[in-house]
Every structure is written in C-alpha cells, then in structure tokens.
Design a protein around this nucleic acid. Structure first.
Length: 109
DNA sequence: CTCTTGACTGAGG
DNA sequence: GCCTCAGCCAAGA
C-alpha cells in the first residue's frame, strides 16, 4: 500500500465517517467530492478495506439507494438492520425515501 | 507494461 | 419499467 493510495482511500473513509446519523450517500457522490467523479467503483473498492476502520459502510449505497454492498457484510441483513436502527427505512435492499435522507458531501461538508 | 476485474453510472433497447 | 451494453478509472495479477 502506497501513501498516496492510502490518501485516496483515507478520503473515502473520512467522508464516509462524516455521514450524519440516519443519512446515506452514494459512491458517485463521494467520488465526485474526491475529484474522481467517474471513479465511483474505486469508492466502493475502497470500502473493501473499511472493515475495522470504523467506517459506516452501511450508509454508503449506490445511486439508486440500493444496498449493493450488503453482500460484503457478514450477515445477509446486517446492513439493513443497521440502517433501520438509524431510522432509515429499507425494503428489499432498497432504501425508502432515499432522496430525502441522501447526504451529499460536496454540499453538506 | 498489459489485461482483467469491480461495493458504479448513465444511456439504449 | 426492466434488462443489457458500454464507459469510466484505479488496483491487482
């Protein structure tokens, strides 16, 4: 791991950790905030190492509000459970009222 | 250095 | 309205 790569990853973690309670954001939003607008996949990939970093990856979903990354969590519904615990309604991996709880770092941060 | 892959996204059928 | 294709960019083999 190079320092520079960690920087990119660290930024992702930093933004992810700044996501307010009961809010969610998308990979694309974070990527845009980092200046890598078309590297949304890198954001998701960065989350690959979010385990143990205290990063609420469960608050990061795709642009449709779909819990695409839940497959990377331990259980099948752990990600959904965490979100629901924060007041986020999730049905069938799909965040309800997504547009209202959406948190954009470039505007809120 | 080249090729593959991916927790995405937007456009087209 | 759902499914498929292509583009994107960085990391790993």
């Amino acid at each position: 791991m190079k320092p520079e790569t960690l920087n990119f990853f660290d930024k992702v973690y930093e933004v992810a950790k700044c996501i307010p309670y009961g809010r969610v954001t998308s990979y694309g939003a974070i990527a845009t905030y980092l200046g890598a607008a078309r590297s949304a996949r890198m954001v998701g990939y960065a989350m690959n190492g979010s385990g143990g970093k205290g990063v609420p990856a469960h608050r990061v979903v795709n642009k449709k509000g779909l819990l695409t990354g839940k497959h990377h969590f331990e259980g099948t519904n752990l990600m959904q459970q965490l979100l629901e615990s924060e007041g986020v309604v999730v049905i069938e991996n799909q965040i309800q009222n997504f547009k209202e709880i959406f948190w954009e770092p470039s505007k809120e941060l």
